[in-house]
């Protein structure tokens, strides 16, 4: 379990992380979301002791990361897959991790196989790696110590669709076996598919957190009708506003049952009525972080 308590990190006048408190629970995948520069990476660096906090604490199973006797055996960390010596081979980088943690020699080959890096690829120098291969190597470094906590910053970055599916299954399996997984991503669809819990951060502050189902419920309902203007009028009359959604559908904050009743009373036939999903997270994300978006998108 990862416990972040009142964590603040300032750089001069700039507050990168502002009084952040959340938990990543055991047996669950926690998605850490936020626009670029929101403070995700800084928070993750504080967790693993690379950045000292200005105040507050970040604990792994109740202990500071620096107090773990052999951290790689307990916490798998991937902060930046590109942060590797370009002149080392993939196998060598993994061997350095294996040696540091004091693992048996065979674990390197086993791990290379697990992340699907071939012998040929493993013997190439990292400067010749694609981003996806670097990610696989970074994930291998995180996993090789068989840790029970994973802290991954944008692990799906650069992976091909099969790689993303593989990563998803891997993290799901990890959480199901009682591990704790915290991953940040800006690939909202990825997070939505895999995460059990969500923490949304903007401008260094937490703007929302909870289980995915709780948060997405708040994202509303999508409704579609051949008589959309009629439906909008009926909803307006009932005190529910809607915002246009993709392909002429409507998204409203009212729940499905209310909309169904309103539509029935107004005699409008619905062609679709469902909870907002995929784009729901996107909507929620943009709405929650509207003040912090560079583009100034109003949700």
């Amino acid at each position: 379990m990862i416990t972040i308590d009142s964590l603040t990190r300032k750089y001069g006048d700039f507050t990168a992380v502002d009084n952040v408190t959340f938990e990543a629970r055991t047996g669950r995948v926690t998605g850490f979301l936020g626009p670029n520069g929101a403070g995700k990476s800084t928070t993750m660096r504080v967790m693993v002791g690379l950045t000292p906090p200005t105040s507050g604490s970040a604990l792994i199973d109740g202990r500071r990361f620096a107090d773990l006797p052999n951290p790689g055996r307990e916490v798998g960390v991937l902060l930046d897959a590109s942060a590797q010596h370009a002149g080392r081979t993939g196998r060598e980088i993994l061997t350095i991790a294996q040696r540091t943690m004091g693992l048996p020699k065979g674990s390197v080959d086993a791990m290379l196989e697990r992340v699907s890096l071939t012998d040929n690829e493993a013997n190439r120098r990292v400067r010749n790696y694609s981003l996806g291969m670097r990610q696989r190597l970074g994930i291998a470094t995180a996993l090789i110590g068989d840790p029970h906590v994973l802290i991954l910053d944008e692990p799906a970055n650069g992976l091909d669709p099969a790689g993303i599916r593989w990563m998803r299954d891997l993290l799901r399996g990890y959480a199901n076996r009682g591990g704790t997984v915290l991953l940040s991503s800006h690939l909202l669809h990825e997070i939505e598919v895999i995460a059990d819990d969500l923490v949304v951060i903007g401008n260094g502050r937490i703007v929302a957190q909870g289980t995915k189902s709780e948060l997405l419920e708040a994202a509303g309902t999508v409704v579609r009708s051949d008589d959309l203007p009629g439906l909008v009028r009926a909803l307006d009359a009932a005190g529910h506003s809607g915002t246009p959604y993709a392909d002429g559908a409507l998204r409203t904050d009212a729940d499905a049952s209310t909309i169904g009743k309103v539509a029935l009373a107004a005699g409008v036939a619905l062609t679709e009525l469902r909870a907002a999903d995929g784009a729901g997270l996107e909507e929620m994300f943009l709405e929650l972080t509207a003040d912090t978006q560079r583009e100034g998108v109003a949700a």
């Binding site: 693993v48 002791g49 690379l50 990361f65 620096a66 773990l68 951290p71 790689g72 960390v77 902060l79 930046d80 942060a83 590797q84 980088i93 350095i96 991790a97 540091t100 943690m101 470094t141």
Partner: peptide, 9 residues
């Protein structure tokens, strides 16, 4: 990034 994470001292 890796070195000081595997050996945080």
């Amino acid at each position: 990034l890796t070195t000081f994470t595997l050996v945080p001292h």
